[in-house]
Design a protein around this nucleic acid. Structure first.
Lengths: 329, 329
DNA sequence: ATAGGCAGTCAAAGATAAAGAGTGCTAAAG
DNA sequence: CTTTAGCACTCTTTATCTTTGACTGCCTAT
């Protein structure tokens, strides 16, 4: 691919990102200093290579998935985040009084508003969390609340019912036993320790202690597995012209509702990564830009979902900025 | 309104609920044992009264908002919940191992699947909750976690940063002071007690104690105000034929994203109430059926959002059943 | 009060036509 | 070998028109 071809692909991608309309050869004559016929020749070459597509036989060209890929990997010149965008986000991150989850939520909202894409954060307890405190508080004869605290300050609670009641003494004995074995243990190893170290001591007799212990094990399991999803701007992405058709809208809204699809968005890489169309394994019509974040005891994924015709540079910079600021909270 | 007119309105509402197509006079000849001309006369009378509408000059009739209202209030004969519907929901409510919030979530999903309407639950701490325990756990020099437990077993936590650190002794003093004044106080009165009983003791000197106290006050305020929203089946309601147009879909999806609109759905009445079109103050194209629920320390609203052309009886029964089962958890 | 009959209205669907944007290909020029 | 001009062709978009069918409203007769 020579210079002019690269330049042509760049122009087409960027113009299409702006206008969402197929680009014809004539409109590029001046920018490339050659005739439309020459451009047509080059276009048909780029189409042969798979970087461009037509929407019908006599239409202008639009970038193919491969075209976007090539643009992002080889052509796009990273530019700093725009000052306005940064300013809008700073109103959130400078506000000290916000709790982490609120700060994430609000910043997702702002980025969605700014870009008209949908923002997603998938968070879960980081496995670096070590259990630092277990408490079980009786509420009534048969109802109890268990609370665990980790060394990163993560707190979870769960209420239990022990049908035929349990005495405060029995509760204390069970909790002491649990504490003795699992304090300081990383969250993801607690289940195994409970199973192999504590369970043998408690034995198989189904008594109050055993019931409480089992309930607690379930609780720990749920905590280590559960993740929370924040999604902002479902309605914003619908403003994009590619989603002006009722069926496409329904398709995308259904996907947003599907937990399996959403949890699949999880990203393991620390950098900002771009997934285009079929690469997303979510929907061929969208691009998803993702990054991993990690902040006191919580780690997760931040993602921007937009049309393939996305402002790649801006979205990547916004996500990068989001990640950095969240990690500094 | 005579018998035949009532019967006519009933037939039109029920047929329209089934088919979503305007009802013509000819299709009702047999059911009413009279000619289409007679039915046309009756129809135009019902239109004059405001119970029916036309979509264009020569179309069949559809029920107006007032028509639905009259149908729900005066014509509809309440029928028991269908056995199949009941069975599907029992799979959730018989499963003892589900936590309240999961049970609500799953049952909303099921009802949405069953009806193709959107289900919403707005929950918040019940004001019957009295504070029964306050704890503050130091995590690092500058980081703390506060935990409150109510007599109903409700637990909330929040982490704080005290920039220049705070000693365990100072923490204990502050927590003891708070405990002394607010244990046993209903959640909604805690803020006032802190302000008028505890604050004067702590005084205005900006020291560590004061900082911790202020952070705790914010925490309590947030707890009493915050509510959580569960929404299931946004995509399902879009299967209804009234939402086959892109603009209408966008409108309704935007509304679902708007927290103010959603929190407005709150219902104070214990019974099952029906709000049609403009009565919803949410969107003129939908009907919302609501009820209030109340279960250990949590109270809230359950709502079904569907088209005005809703299966009123079924939706009402489903909601009633949902409420009862949730309250018995 | 009811019904028959007819004229009139409107939506939906299909057919047709014209305009406009853009391509592919060929042949000539540089 | 590369570039360009030119022309035929294709396809979308938009508008206009027509036909069909489902209704209603109203007048009149029973």
């Amino acid at each position: 691919m020579n210079n002019r071809q690269t330049e042509l692909l760049k122009l087409i991608v960027e113009e299409y990102i702006k206008t969402a309309k197929p680009i014809g050869s004539k409109s590029l004559e001046e920018k490339l200093n050659c005739s439309s016929a020459t451009i047509r020749n080059e276009m048909s070459y780029l189409e042969e290579l798979g970087y461009l597509e037509k929407t019908h036989t006599s239409s202008g060209r639009i970038p193919s998935e491969l075209g976007y890929r090539y643009y992002v990997d080889n052509i796009m010149i990273p530019k700093e985040l725009n000052g306005d965008d940064m300013l809008k986000l700073q109103t959130i991150f400078k506000n000290q009084s916000l709790v982490l989850s609120d700060a994430i939520e609000k910043s997702l909202e702002i980025v969605s508003e700014l870009t008209n894409y949908t923002l997603i954060a998938l968070g879960s307890k980081s496995l670096e969390n070590c259990l630092s405190k277990v408490e079980v508080i009786p509420i009534t004869e048969t109802n109890l609340v268990a609370i665990i605290v980790t060394d990163k300050g993560y707190v979870e609670n769960r209420s239990f019912t022990i049908e035929d009641g349990i005495s405060p003494l029995e509760v204390k004995q069970t909790v002491d036993l649990i504490n003795k074995h699992v304090i300081g243990t990383p969250l993801d190893e607690v289940s195994a320790k409970l199973e192999f170290e504590v369970k043998p001591i408690i034995g198989d007799n189904v008594n109050h202690q055993k019931k409480l212990f089992d309930a607690f094990c379930n609780f720990i399991n749920d905590v280590t597995n559960e993740s929370n999803v924040k999604m902002k701007g479902r309605a914003n992405i619908l403003k994009q012209p590619e989603f002006s058709d009722a069926d496409k809208i329904k398709k995308i809204i259904s996907k947003f509702e599907d937990k399996d699809f959403i949890s699949n968005i999880k990203e393991e890489d620390n950098g900002v990564k771009v997934y285009i169309g079929s690469e997303t394994e979510f929907d061929n019509d969208v691009t998803i830009i993702k990054t991993k974040y990690n902040v006191n005891g919580e780690e997760g994924t931040l993602a921007i979902v937009g049309p393939k015709r996305m402002e790649y540079n801006r979205a990547m910079m916004l996500l990068e900025y989001l990640k950095e600021n969240i990690e500094n909270l």
